[in-house]
Simulated assay, not measured.
Amino acid sequence: MKSRKERIEKELPVLIGSLEAPSHLKESMLYSLNAGGKRLRPILVLATLHAFGKEEDPGMPAACAVEMIHTYSLIHDDLPCMDDDDLRRGKPTNHKMFGEAMAVLAGDGLLTHSFQALIAGDSISPEQKILLVAELVHASGAEGMAGGQAADMEGEAKSLSLSELEYIHTHKTAKLLTFSLVAGAIIAGADKEKIEKIRGFGQHIGIAFQIRDDILDIEGTVEKIGKPVGSDTENQKTTYPSLLTLDGAKDKLDSHIALAKNALQELDLHGTFLQDLTDLVALRDS
Rank of each mutant, 00 (worst) to 15 (best):
E193W: 06
P228Q: 11
L177W: 02
A185I: 12
H50E: 15
S32A: 15
V281W: 07
P241A: 08
C81G: 09
T245L: 00
S28N: 03
L246Y: 05
K250Y: 11
A134L: 14
G189R: 05
D108N: 13
H76Q: 04
S123C: 07
L246Q: 12
T221N: 04
A190W: 05
S242D: 04
K227S: 08
T93Q: 00
K261N: 07
S286L: 10
L19F: 13
T112H: 11
K227W: 12
G107M: 01
R39S: 01
K96A: 04
P58K: 02
L19M: 15
L259F: 08
K175M: 12
S73H: 04
Q116G: 10
G202Y: 01
P58E: 01
A65V: 11
K197Q: 13
A142N: 13
D268C: 09
E196R: 15
H171F: 07
E100M: 04
A260D: 00
L33I: 14
E143G: 13
E196P: 08
I215F: 10
V14D: 08
E127R: 12
R199M: 07
H256W: 02
Q210D: 10
S286W: 06
D78T: 11
F98L: 11
G226Y: 04
V229G: 03
K5L: 13
I195F: 03
R7P: 01
P228I: 06
H113F: 15
A174M: 02
F179H: 08
G17H: 13
S161Y: 01
A142L: 15
T272E: 07
